[in-house]
């Protein structure tokens, strides 16, 4: 089916998700690099004919799965759902790091409240990370207390 060929290729990246709607489309990723991605095996259709075919029939409703793409964030694979000729949903099927763990699409830091870390404050720890203390400042540090306790 020609209509399948016009299905866009998609890449979920660091923080920006830009949806391409043409075969072999360029996708700008979160760090500003540009990639051209194939989808399935039907991407050899020329882009020039794509607009015509879309005008005639539009994409068939359904869910389409992109090929798995290896990125420096790990493997990325997404599925798109077409409803009434337009994309209604994009789902990440596979988003894993080099060790196969699932990863977040965006790694950016966001504001969190003190109350969100409160529960962890009273945990038993064996070491404290802090800005470098001098030998003298060490004596008054929490690390010094832990060391004396042999934690």
């Amino acid at each position: 089916m020609r209509t399948r060929a016009i299905l866009g290729s998609i890449l979920a990246s660091a923080s920006v998700l830009i949806i391409g709607y043409q075969a072999g489309v360029s996708v700008t990723t979160g760090d500003g690099t540009s990639l051209t991605l194939p989808v399935g095996s039907t991407t050899s259709e020329s882009v020039g004919t794509t607009a015509d075919s879309r005008a005639i029939s539009g994409p068939t409703d359904g869910t389409y799965t992109g090929s798995s793409i290896s990125t420096r964030f790990g493997n990325v694979q997404v599925a798109v759902t077409i409803t009434s000729g337009s994309i209604s949903e994009v789902t990440a099927l596979q988003l894993t790091d080099a060790d196969g763990r699932s990863v977040q699409i965006s790694n950016r830091a966001a504001p969190i409240l003190r109350s969100e870390v409160l529960a962890s404050q009273s945990a038993q720890v064996s070491n404290v990370s802090g800005a470098t203390y001098t030998t003298r400042a060490y004596l008054g540090s929490l690390q010094s207390a832990l060391d004396q306790a042999g934690a």
Partner: peptide, 19 residues
């Protein structure tokens, strides 16, 4: 897993959090 605390820069006798 080893638990490490992070010092609270505004209160040297308290932990900000631990992980």
């Amino acid at each position: 897993p080893l638990r490490a605390g992070i010092a609270d820069p505004h209160n040297p006798t308290a932990l900000l959090c631990s992980l």
